[in-house]
Amino acid sequence: MARPGGTGTSPPEAAEVTVVVVAGGDPPSPGEIARLPDRAVVVAADHGLDHAYAAGLEVAVAVGDMDSVSPEALSAAEQAGTRVECHPVDKDQTDLELALEWAARLADRVIVIGAGGGRVDHLLGNLAVVASPRWAGTDIEVWLGEARAVVAHGRRALEAEPGATVSLFAVGGPARVTTTGLAWSLRDEVLEPLSGRGVSNRVVDAPAYIQVSEGVVLAVLP
């Protein structure tokens, strides 16, 4: 993982990197920071810039309306040559959406950290944003402490040991799902968005897989 003091130069080719989006919710835990890939490109969403610097990360892009970032972090980013993209406070997109637009252009895999927080509406909004069909060509997962939420638009591996709990939620409409490696399998079956059918399944064979042929599924591993 890159550390502060970089020059803000262009990242490697998209297929070669993972992008870490640091959101402005709760600060990511030391365990989350330790698990991040070494060569990840970091995009900070507003106050996520403070979280990134506090964790010792080098930021390639900082984006948002900058209404909650500290003046010290913003000044440090400008001095480091980080690209800073400031948007109006009165905007239609959240800071996380703006950061994901950058992330989706830079890489095929995105890890979002710092997306949790004291406000339930922020957490629900962040999970809805990452599950948008706009990012169908990008593998996205959200780290929330020891929990993970993995977005599945097609085939996704669920990296978890046997015995781990996994819950599947259709987002935005019905989803047609096939699973392997789970205790209660789905075979080209439909999950409804307002149903608890996918809650509290269990991994029996690792890696487990989920195949979504229609719709979007959020797989939560608590």
Rank of each mutant, 00 (worst) to 15 (best):
L182A: 00
L182K: 01
L182E: 07
L182C: 02
A183V: 08
A183N: 10
A183C: 14
A183H: 02
W184C: 05
W184T: 09
W184P: 00
S185I: 07
S185R: 15
S185D: 15
S185A: 14
S185N: 12
L186M: 08
L186T: 10
L186E: 05
L186V: 01
R187F: 09
R187C: 13
R187Q: 15
R187V: 14
R187A: 13
R187D: 15
D188H: 12
D188S: 11
D188R: 09
D188I: 04
D188V: 08
E189M: 05
E189P: 06
E189V: 04
E189A: 10
E189F: 07
V190G: 01
V190C: 05
V190Y: 04
V190N: 04
V190L: 09
L191W: 00
L191K: 08
L191P: 01
L191T: 00
L191D: 09
L191G: 01
L191I: 00
E192T: 12
E192G: 12
E192L: 14
P193V: 08
P193K: 01
P193H: 05
L194D: 14
L194C: 06
L194K: 05
S195F: 05
S195A: 10
S195L: 12
G196M: 04
G196W: 08
G196T: 08
G196K: 02
R197Y: 06
G198V: 03
G198A: 03
G198M: 00
G198S: 02
G198Q: 04
V199R: 02
V199S: 11
V199L: 12
V199C: 08
S200I: 11
S200T: 07
S200V: 11
S200Y: 09
N201H: 12
N201C: 01
N201K: 00
N201E: 10
R202N: 11
R202H: 14
R202A: 13
R202E: 15
V203M: 00
V203S: 06
V203T: 07
V203R: 00
V203G: 13
V204K: 02
V204W: 02
V204D: 13
V204A: 07
V204L: 07
V204M: 03
V204H: 10
D205I: 15
D205S: 12
D205E: 15
D205Y: 10
D205A: 15
A206E: 10
A206R: 09
A206G: 04
A206Y: 05
P207L: 03
P207S: 03
A208C: 12
A208V: 07
I210E: 09
I210P: 06
I210D: 03
Q211V: 13
Q211S: 14
Q211E: 15
Q211W: 15
V212W: 05
V212Q: 06
S213P: 02
S213T: 14
E214D: 12
E214Y: 02
E214S: 13
G215R: 10
G215K: 00
